[in-house]
């Protein structure tokens, strides 16, 4: 055997295969691969820093302000921004900076809960539909078409309007119900793009079962676009929550949220524009951070964008 081996290595005599730059240990697993290209993406760095700040704000608002957002002496109502109250005060005399900071938690919560849930539902259904095909696919896809046909804001508007009590969970649930089809479709398309590759056939030829094939071969190669979109979608949901609350069918007082602040500010647009400006800036920044994070992730996780 050894003699033959030598014959091969001499006959083949191939020079070190990869370009010299590529280190032998260079990983190509989904996340390592993505991380390498993310580090060099300025948009990723900007959005990552923003997100870290915003998430900290949502989890530990007391780090950012000593004021109690619920301490609202009417005596200091309707003040313009000042050194003492950076964002001014609202009608009730609450410190507006503190209210905006504390508002992050609810907005983020809705965004993350909805995104994570539709991600899990979408990935599972899309994977099953694409992998098994046939009637499983037909039934699942007709179902997604059905839900897809209802614009999610309209659906949420109708279903939330009939509820008298609306918590973070209620709003999230309704948004989940109306938005999962996007993810199921995206995942299905992504799986269909890899399922006909010969490495899947090779695994089947070796006797691998459906679960092994999905876990080891399909998921790592098809998850990329969906992960990216999930981040973009978190931004969209945060915008949607603000919109629904602004329209009066989202969260309710005494909860603190950006949507509620916008809702309140609309009556005083002329006199107190700062009531509108500050929460709007935060909504915009959050949506921007998630969206550009998502775009960066999508690029990094997409195998097609990789230079070979």
């Amino acid at each position: 055997m050894t003699e033959l081996n030598k014959a091969h290595t001499v006959a083949a005599g191939e020079p070190p295969p990869a370009p010299k730059k590529a280190k032998a240990q260079e990983e190509a697993s989904l996340w390592m691969d993505a991380w390498r290209s993310l580090r060099r993406n300025p948009w990723f760095v900007v959005s990552a820093v923003l997100l870290v700040v915003l998430v900290t704000m949502a989890l530990f608002p007391q780090l950012f302000t000593d004021n109690d957002p619920r301490a609202c002496p009417l005596s200091r109502s309707r003040q313009e921004p000042s050194a003492e109250h950076w964002f001014g005060t609202d009608i009730q005399g609450c410190d507006y900076y503190a209210r905006v900071i504390y508002g992050a938690a609810n907005s983020m919560a809705v965004g993350v809960i909805v995104s994570l849930s539709v991600f899990v539902i979408g990935v599972a259904l899309g994977l099953v539909a694409a992998f098994f095909g046939g009637w499983v696919d037909a039934v699942l896809m007709r179902l997604t078409d059905l839900v897809f046909a209802i614009p999610y804001l309209l659906g949420a508007l109708v279903f939330l309007a009939v509820q008298s009590e609306r918590s973070v969970w209620d709003v999230s649930l309704i948004l989940i119900v109306f938005t999962w089809p996007t993810f199921a479709r995206l995942m299905r398309g992504s799986v269909l793009a890899v399922i006909n590759n010969d490495y899947i056939t090779a695994a089947r030829a070796l006797g691998a079962g459906p679960l092994t094939i999905m876990r080891r071969h399909i998921l790592p190669n098809s998850l990329g676009p969906v992960v990216g979109y999930a981040a973009v979608f978190t931004g969209i949901v945060i915008g949607a929550e603000a919109t629904l609350t602004f329209l009066g069918v989202g969260l309710q007082l005494p909860a603190i949220s950006w949507g509620l602040q916008l809702d309140e500010a609309k009556s005083y647009l002329q006199q107190l524009p700062h009531l509108l400006t500050f929460p709007l800036i935060f909504v915009a920044l959050t949506v921007f951070a998630f969206t550009s994070m998502g775009e960066a992730l999508r690029d990094a996780l997409d195998p097609k964008s990789k230079k070979r």
Binding site: A28, L30, N197, A202, R216, N221
Partner: peptide
């Protein structure tokens, strides 16, 4: 190019 899983060593 399609017969090897690009995510596996």
């Amino acid at each position: 190019y399609t017969s090897l899983n690009p995510r596996m060593s």
